[in-house]
């Protein structure tokens, strides 16, 4: 058995955390080959080669892989698929876009958001916003899986696997990149940060979200948000934590002005320590919080920022 793992490469850079966590999830299933694809991927490939448990790295550099469009990357993976029993990627928006396309081209099911590997055919995944855990056994010859990285520890580094350059695969030109709207930030990445401070509708405005950001910056934390905060324009979409946003499991999650809807809990309830600050003592968020503070966030957050 052998595993092909699509490394997370954005703008030529390897997303080490997501990739190394996925390696941990699948390394017992067989020899792991990492695929780094991008307009530029050589640097990512040499970095990926250091991840413990990786046997080989394939580097596919070509302009068509530059903006993570699904069609060419799926075609590339399908062209390599014959050699592998498992095709895997971290469950990022890129992989969610690409892997189901790969699976359908191979006429197999995709198993998304895998949170546990039982054996080579059997996997555990959350369903119903994490209200249930399902164990599924695949009857397909090739298993196509995306990995919920928040449930696995990152593999170490220090190895030096061989890197092999490969040519592009043929793919019809169906879509074209136009532009990215990415806000640069010095804060840690939301999905790998050890502390996350999140704000909800209770924060009330984009302006007042600065209170949340100030606490985050004092703690060296990432900033998250509820759907209501994003929908209301207080926070950008990529801060959304939840069933249909990002899934995080930091050491400390501080929820401010968030009621604790099931769709939000789905994205953060595996955090080690949860703090809730809410003025409504009945808010459901308190049922999952290790430390609950019933308070007005406009008083409590600045005070907390000052005292930590």
């Amino acid at each position: 058995m052998a595993v092909l793992l699509l490394a997370e490469v954005t703008g030529g850079a390897l997303q080490m955390d997501a990739t190394a966590k996925s390696v941990t999830a699948v390394k017992d299933l067989g020899e792991v080959t990492l695929l780094c694809a991008g307009a530029e991927a050589a640097e990512a490939a040499s970095q990926a080669a250091t991840i413990d448990g990786v046997a080989k790295v394939l580097c596919a550099e070509d302009a068509q892989y530059g903006h993570r469009l699904a069609e060419p990357t799926a075609a590339l993976i399908v062209s390599l698929a014959g050699d592998y029993s498992h095709i895997v990627a971290p469950a990022t928006t890129d992989a969610k876009n690409i892997l189901p396309r790969v699976a359908a081209l191979l006429d197999v099911m995709v198993i998304t958001d895998v949170s546990g590997v039982v054996d080579a055919d059997t996997f555990e995944r959350p369903v119903y916003a994490g209200n249930a855990l399902q164990t599924v056994k695949s009857r397909d010859a090739t298993k196509v899986l995306s990995i919920r990285t928040s449930t696995f520890d990152a593999a170490g580094t220090g190895s030096s696997a061989p890197v092999e350059n490969i040519g592009p695969a043929e793919a019809p030109s169906l879509s074209e990149w136009v532009e990215d709207h990415v806000a640069a930030s010095d804060r840690p990445d939301l999905t790998s940060a050890s502390i996350v401070v999140s704000g909800g509708r209770g924060v009330g405005s984009e302006e007042d979200f600065k209170i949340i950001e100030a606490l985050a910056d004092k703690l060296g934390a990432a900033v998250g948000a509820s759907r209501a905060a994003v929908d209301s324009g207080y926070a950008p979409n990529d801060w959304q934590v939840g069933q249909t946003g990002k899934v995080v499991a930091p050491d400390l999650y501080i929820a401010c002005g968030i009621s604790g809807a099931i769709q939000h809990l789905a994205g953060m309830k595996d955090s080690k320590v949860i703090v809730a600050i809410n003025k409504d003592e009945e808010a459901p968020i308190f049922q999952v919080a290790d430390y609950g503070l019933v308070a007005d966030l406009f008083e409590a957050i600045p005070e907390l920022t000052e005292k930590v």
Binding site: L133, T135, R139
Partner: peptide, 26 residues
Amino acid sequence: RLEVVKTTEPPERQAGIRVGSVDELV
């Protein structure tokens, strides 16, 4: 293509405590 072997409830979080002030929280 997938056989659902079982469906279980996820582990419940233990309910925590209320703190009375920011100082206590810190």
